[in-house]
């Protein structure tokens, strides 16, 4: 079950899962990714956003995104 839509997220990167009562913190990169996922953006769109927002190479952004998605999967959030 995709629970991203249920997460409460604030601009400082604090995330609360109301179903499990768990909270997480993410950095600016993580926050951008989570917000983009909530908005239904594709991985390609997110990579482009990462590149333009954080001035990183596309390949690096793609690797970071895949890592982060894996982490969300392991937490059962996506």
């Amino acid at each position: 079950m995709n629970r991203l839509s249920q997460l409460a997220i604030n601009d400082e990167g604090f995330i609360f899962d109301p179903v499990r009562g768990e909270s997480f913190t993410v950095n600016k990169t993580g926050l951008l990714i989570i917000k983009a996922l909530k908005e239904g953006k594709s991985q390609e769109e997110i990579v482009r956003e990462l590149v333009s927002s954080f001035n990183v190479e596309e390949e690096k952004a793609r690797i970071d995104l895949v890592d982060f998605l894996e982490r969300l999967r392991s937490l059962n959030l996506i």
Partner: peptide
């Protein structure tokens, strides 16, 4: 005994 807790909505 609970000392800290959080409200949850688990349907």
């Amino acid at each position: 005994k609970i000392w800290t807790g959080v409200t949850v909505r688990n349907e």
